[in-house]
Nucleic acid binder design. Structure first.
Lengths: 145, 145
DNA sequence: TACGGATCGTTTGCATGCTAATGATTACAT
DNA sequence: ATGTAATCATTAGCATGCAAACGATCCGTA
């Protein structure tokens, strides 16, 4: 079933590239967009909280946040109650980008799935959820052979 | 259907990470493994040819090849007939890694798909192929709205 | 035969992701 | 209360991918 993994990788890469192209038109790269999606919903999160929600490591968020700060998309504020924490707040510029970016995202998703019936989408979703569950709950052995 | 893309991304990341972990046990990283898979089959390809087969850019292959050369996995040879070409040849070390790595790869794939029935695997494959076909033949509009 | 365009590989610079090491601040136990 | 633990963010260094710029070589034409 190595072939299935190859297909999954290929599909994901095509989608990621297309998403990055679409986001770039709005001055936002794909990694930054992931941060935006969360902060649009809940502003003022810390890098660590953001990393947990995005399933990436804290350094990844820190670096992305630094680039976004340089791009004028967010600002860092030290938490007054706990000096270890940094709170990430979106700028008006980032908020203005929400509508067009979300629209582009929806358009892309619909485009990619356009040739799939509702039933096929349900099957796809179910299969992917099973794989995620499997990999999460039962990490691969790796034996040592 | 933004959710479907998220699931696809998540599943792919879990698989990629697990694959990289497994490969690392054999002194090979995930990107290098992709190069190996092709060269095991057809030794002496050029960076350009390799890039085309792997669906990545030439610089990506060049950089990976440089790391692999440093790791003693391959050697570069100038093509005697065409001075612009470089031929990548595997070392015995790279060839010795073939069996264990392919075994690990098969094990991982089976593990990941273990909870899927044959029917579910067929549906998954079919859906992924449709998405790939769609994204390849009908690149997303990107409008400009 | 000499020159201009095409074809390669490489280099450079960037984005995204990881791990490991570092530094600052808080919390806890004595 | 004080010193040690734990908890954060950051930095450094690496792997993988891209695009753009560069340099070398080859090919076709004048």
């Amino acid at each position: 079933m190595t072939e299935l993994i190859r297909l999954l990788t290929r599909a994901q890469k095509l989608l990621r590239t297309a998403a990055d192209d679409a986001m770039s038109r709005h001055g936002v790269r794909i990694g930054q967009n992931l941060v935006l999606e969360v902060l649009w919903e809940t502003d003022g999160l810390t890098p660590g909280e953001l990393a947990a929600r995005l399933q990436v490591t804290t350094p990844t968020v820190v670096n992305t946040a630094t680039r976004m700060e340089a791009a004028g998309l967010l600002v860092r504020h030290r938490d007054p109650a706990d000096g270890r924490l940094v709170r990430l707040h979106l700028t008006p510029k980032a908020r203005a980008a929400q509508e067009p970016i979300e629209a582009a995202r929806r358009r892309l998703a619909e485009h990619a799935m356009a040739t799939l019936t509702d039933d096929e989408r349900r099957h796809l979703r179910s299969a992917l959820e099973k794989i995620i569950k499997r990999m999460t709950e039962s990490p691969p052995d790796l034996g040592d052979a």
